[in-house]
Each structure stands twice: as C-alpha cells, then as structure tokens.
C-alpha cells in the first residue's frame, strides 16, 4: 500500500503517493517531483552534493527517507532565485568562481545558505572552511566557495539591516 506523504517543496505543497518506502528524499525530489537540481554524488552522506534545507537546516537528502519527512518544508536549489533575481549566495558563487563543473554547486549553495543561517561562521575563513567541509568539490573551487560565503553573508546582513 503506498504511503501518502506531503512535502512543502520550495513553498509549494506536494502530495505524493509513495509506492516504495525505500525512496530517499533525494530520489523523490529528483525522480518523482522532477527537481533534478539537487545532485547525487555518493548517495551515502559522504560528499554533500545532495544538500537541501529541511525546515531550514542543511541535511544530506540522500540519507533521509522521504517517508520520514512527511510534512516537512524542503528548500532546494530551485527555490532560491526569485525569477531572474539570483539569491545573494547564488550571485556570490558566480562572482568568486566558487565552482567549476557545477555538479556539487547546488549542494554547496544550500550548505552555504544553511551555514549563514546558523550564524556560526561569521566572516572567519577558517570557520567557514571547516563548516563547508561536508561539501566536497573535486574541482577544488574551495577558495571561491569560502569567498562566496563571506560575500553573501555580508550582503544578506546588509539587506537585513536595511529592512529593519
């Protein structure tokens, strides 16, 4: 009997009849919902390519059963930009060349956003490097990734300040 679950993905409710309880959140996003921006790099929580935000927290979607996430709010890479306006983290990754092949990039960006929201790294490059070490980039665009987090963090802070 299929499990009925509902997810709020990028603000939109998705009711899913899960015919297979084995489906991970990653595979449901990619194969059932069709949001293929989230990538599978290792499928075992060892690379970070599948990082999404679940209820605002960065998580490896490959190590989570979709069934377990019934009712959760999921944010994927597809949910960041507002139309043609890139999210500050996305824009920063482009400016600093924080990627090459781009495959780990959705996970890096979601992880970076999660990190900025955690508020633990500030602008300390060493803390950012450590906090971003769960996202492997085989092209090794690490310098750009770290710079992008600093840049995006500053911009998001400015925006917040100007709004408050």
């Amino acid at each position: 009997m299929p499990l009925s679950i509902s997810l709020i993905v990028n603000g939109e409710q998705k009711d899913i009849a899960l015919e297979d309880p084995r489906a991970t959140l990653l595979d449901v996003l990619r194969d059932r919902i069709g949001l293929t921006g989230t990538k599978k790099g290792c499928d075992r929580g060892q690379c970070g390519a599948c990082t999404v935000l679940i209820d605002g927290r960065r998580i490896n979607s490959c190590l989570s059963l979709a069934a377990s996430q019934d009712g959760a709010e999921i944010t994927t890479i597809e949910g960041l930009a507002a139309g043609d306006d890139l999210h500050p983290v996305q824009a920063a990754f482009i400016e600093t060349d924080g990627f090459q092949c781009g495959y780990c990039t959705p996970g890096q960006i979601m992880s970076a956003l999660g990190l900025i929201r955690e508020g633990i790294a500030d602008d300390d490059p060493e803390r950012i490097r450590e906090a971003m070490s769960g996202n492997i980039c085989r092209c090794a665009a690490y310098q750009g990734i770290t710079e992008a987090v600093i840049k995006a963090n500053a911009r998001m802070r400015d925006t917040q300040e100007s709004q408050s």
């Binding site: 890139l86 781009g102 990039t105």
Partner: peptide
C-alpha cells in the same frame, strides 16, 4: 564569469 554560471547556480544545468 562563467557563461553557464546562472544555470549551474540555479540547478537548471542539465
């Protein structure tokens, strides 16, 4: 900057 940058940061690069 990369011409495919936007596709790669928005998850639309296929």
């Amino acid at each position: 900057t990369r011409r495919d940058g936007i596709a790669k940061v928005t998850g639309t690069a296929t």
